[in-house]
Amino acid sequence: MSNDNEVLLDKGKQNNSKMKTERKEGEPTSAFKGASWGALLVGVTAYLIGLFNASMQLNEKGYYFAILVFGLYSAVSLQKAVRDKEEGIPVTTIYYGISWFALIVSISLMAIGLYNAGSIVLSEKGFYGMSFVLSLFAAVTVQKNIRDTQKAKERG
């Protein structure tokens, strides 16, 4: 009976090792990649659903949508510029400065818009602020994961 158990254990170990994919050095784990994409999807989807269901005018909805798109782009752009600079890839000072400026402007526009929004209750303001920040953070993390994965594959 113990020989049968040993055979089953050996087969289980073989199956586990076959299922396990090898990860290159410096590549993020699949769990981290999935969590990052999940956070981005949850943040952006929640923000957009909240915006769709909001009882504000269409121009206000457009304002908040534009800030989300601008914020996502500026966050990813800044992350890329910072990382390029860190890795010795040339980044012009003007691009680096504009990237910082764009992110600061997008966050400021969101804060000012929410502060001045009289038609939005405080809990909604908190919801938009949190989903905006989650989306920005997740976009940076997703971009970083994509770059780390690409770099790990190039190293071979």
Rank of each mutant, 00 (worst) to 15 (best):
Ala117Lys: 08
Gly97Lys: 07
Ile89Tyr: 03
Glu60Ser: 15
Asn145Asp: 15
Gly34Trp: 10
Ser99Trp: 02
Tyr128Arg: 05
Ser135Leu: 05
Glu87Arg: 10
Ile89His: 02
Glu86Gly: 00
Asn59Ser: 13
Pro90Gln: 07
Phe32Pro: 00
Val69Asn: 04
Phe137Val: 11
Gln57His: 11
Thr45Glu: 07
Leu58Val: 13
Met110Gln: 04
Ala102Phe: 06
Glu60Met: 09
Tyr63Leu: 13
Ala139Gly: 08
Arg23Pro: 03
Phe70Glu: 14
Lys144His: 07
Ser77Tyr: 08
Tyr115Leu: 15
Tyr73Leu: 06
Gln143Pro: 00
Val76Thr: 03
Gly38Leu: 07
Glu87His: 10
Gly38Gln: 04
Leu114Ala: 10
Tyr115Cys: 02
Tyr96Glu: 15
Ser119Asn: 11
Ile104Thr: 04
Ala31Tyr: 14
Gly62Asn: 13
Gly50His: 06
Asn53Met: 15
Ser99Thr: 03
Asp84Met: 09
Ala117Phe: 06
Ala31Phe: 15
Ser106Phe: 08
Asn145Tyr: 06
Tyr128Glu: 02
Gln143Met: 11
Ala35Gly: 03
Ala111Ser: 10
Thr45His: 04
Pro28Phe: 12
Gly97Ser: 15
Pro90Trp: 08
Leu68Pro: 02
Val69Ala: 08
Ser77Val: 03
Leu68Met: 15
Leu58Asp: 12
Glu124Val: 03
Ala138Pro: 00
Ile94Gln: 12
Val140Asp: 08
Lys125Glu: 00
Asn53Leu: 15
Gly126Arg: 05
Ala111Asn: 03
Ala81Ile: 09
Trp100Asp: 05
Lys24Thr: 12
Ile104His: 03
Trp37His: 08
Thr45Val: 09
Gly97Arg: 07
Tyr115Thr: 09
Phe127Val: 07
Val91Trp: 05
Ile104Trp: 10
Ala117Trp: 00
Trp100Phe: 10
Arg147Gln: 11
Trp37Gly: 01
Leu48His: 01
Lys61His: 12
Ser74Thr: 02
Ile67Leu: 10
Gln143Asp: 15
Tyr64Gln: 07
Leu41Lys: 05
Ile98Leu: 12
Val82Lys: 02
Gln79Leu: 07
Val133Gln: 07
Leu58Lys: 14
Gln79Lys: 01
Val82Phe: 09
Glu27Gln: 13
Gln143Glu: 14
Val91Arg: 04
Met130Val: 15
Glu25His: 11
Leu114Glu: 05
Leu109Asn: 03
Ala111Cys: 04
Phe32Met: 14
Phe101Tyr: 09
Val121Tyr: 14
Phe65Ala: 09
Ala75Glu: 09
Val133Ile: 15
Gln143Ser: 13
Lys24Pro: 02
Trp100Tyr: 12
Trp100Ala: 05
Trp37Met: 07
Val69Gly: 04
Glu86Gln: 12
Lys61Thr: 09
Asn53Pro: 01
Thr93Ser: 13
Asn59Gln: 11
Ala46Trp: 05
Asn145His: 11
Val69Glu: 14
Pro90Gly: 02
Asp148Trp: 12
Thr92Phe: 07
Ser106Gly: 00
Asn145Glu: 03
Leu122Gly: 04
Ile49Val: 14
Ala66His: 05
Ser106Glu: 04
Gly62Ala: 06
Ile104Gly: 02
Gln57Met: 14
Val82Glu: 15
Leu103Lys: 00
Lys144Cys: 04
Arg23Ser: 13
Met110His: 01
Ser131Phe: 11
Arg23Asn: 12
Phe132Gln: 00
Ser135Lys: 00
Asp148Val: 13
Ala117Tyr: 03
Ala75Cys: 07
